[in-house]
Amino acid sequence: MLHTFVAYVEDLPGVLTRVASLFRRLNINIISLTVGRSERPGLSRLTLVCEASAEAGHRIRASLYKLENVVDVDDIAGAPAVTRELALIKVAATPRNRSQIFDLVEVFRARIVDLTSESLMIEMTGVESKIEGLIEVLREDEGRILEICRSGKLTMRRGHHTSGVLKAMGAKTEDNADADNEPAEIAKERAVVEPE
């Protein structure tokens, strides 16, 4: 099954190697890994997606915690969460056939972020399937796609202070709503906001 781990790690040289090395040692392929600054000074936040057996989740989380530079690890598992990916896609387009792309971009709620006489660049944010959808359509014209750059997945648990990460940090708990016990109407409302 797919596992998604969100971890806070110290922003120091070599930390990513330590994380990656753990998966290498377990012979688990990392499908997606994104790292960036977080809301906590000196700590980077990473989202890591990998394919492993259902039971492996516990051991991976426990092993990540054994790394000295890892501060928090959240195993998203099946919990309600928002996952997004960013893609930059450069396509061949001349002034004559651009409008067709503009329409596509409109349908997929993507954006054009660069335009030259031979090509244009599409920026698209969304769930993996949407990005795959756009790429698939663009591929219908052979040779149109010049470059694809995808960020990998970013994941955040839904709800205010619901994440195990923040709980582990002893963040304010009075307004903690356990994601699993989320009131039905709020869950419904979110479902509307986030049509996945």
Partner: peptide, 8 residues
């Protein structure tokens, strides 16, 4: 003492 050993 090591949680990574449980069910390994």
């Amino acid at each position: 003492v090591d949680p990574a050993e449980i069910n390994k």
